[in-house]
Amino acid sequence: MRNILAIAKKEMTVYLTTPWAWIVFTFVSFVSSFFFIGLLVQFKQAHEQIRLMQGGWEQVGAEAQFLRNLTDGVVMPLYSTMLVVLLFVVPFLSARLFAEERRQKTFELLMTAPVTSTEIVLGKYLGGLVIIGATVSVTLVYPLVLAMFGSSFSATTSEKTATLEWVTVLLGFGALVLFGATVLAIGSFVSSLTESVIVAGLITFAVCLVWMIVKIVAPNADEPWRSVLDHLAFDVQLRNPMRGVFELKPLVFFSSVIATFLVLTHRSVESRRWV
């Protein structure tokens, strides 16, 4: 356990003393604030229009009903776009985990130290996970801002109600972290296969992008592939948690993907001893 923590701490130190993590934090804050402002403007316009209409929300079609409250109208759409942002930044973070060690010839230190390959893989994964958790946490500022300055009224009694549904918000936050953790596991494996950080990043991004939108890539698939792809696609698995519906299925699915790729990473690290 101490070895795992030592390696995790080293990874975090490297991320935070070099531009890697800071570039990601800055990029995520920049992009997400753009989307946040855009969504807020859209939300405000919708409410202004509705106020002028006879009958209010009853007149609006089902497809626009999500704009009724801040949780479904602003926070959750923001989190959905964050999924795409993570698809870009997590491969950027995961790429150096193993590839850089090989390039710098420091892997020999880890491999000849009295630590097991399992400890190396878990330590590195844990270190990356903390940075990804921090990256996703940057976006918590938006629900907090809304909770402080926003207000919400019950549709029937016009009484003031809680601004945000925190359970839904936290579920979306959890889904973001879980998705980041999944891409990180895939990225660790890819990184363990190459000496080039750039190659590792690009391949991870390509794999995860295709996996994310596999439904678009293969729109005319026949049964049984259609159902298989339906279950495998990241975006399908994420749809419900991103609507605030808690399900065990995505949790099991993403945990399985993470476990599979960590085992593959371990095998890949072990196999380095055998060439």
Binding site: R2, N3, A6, I7, K9, K10, T13, V14, T17, T18, Q104, K105, T106, F107, E108, L109, L110, T112, A113, P114, V115
Partner: peptide, 24 residues
């Protein structure tokens, strides 16, 4: 090893501390 396995991002002290932790 032939190439000293130094992490360029760490200070010498931080590096030696890491090695000490690895070696228990």
């Amino acid at each position: 090893p032939e190439t000293p396995p130094l992490y360029p991002e760490l200070t010498v002290r931080g590096f030696l501390k890491f090695v000490a932790e690895l070696k228990g």
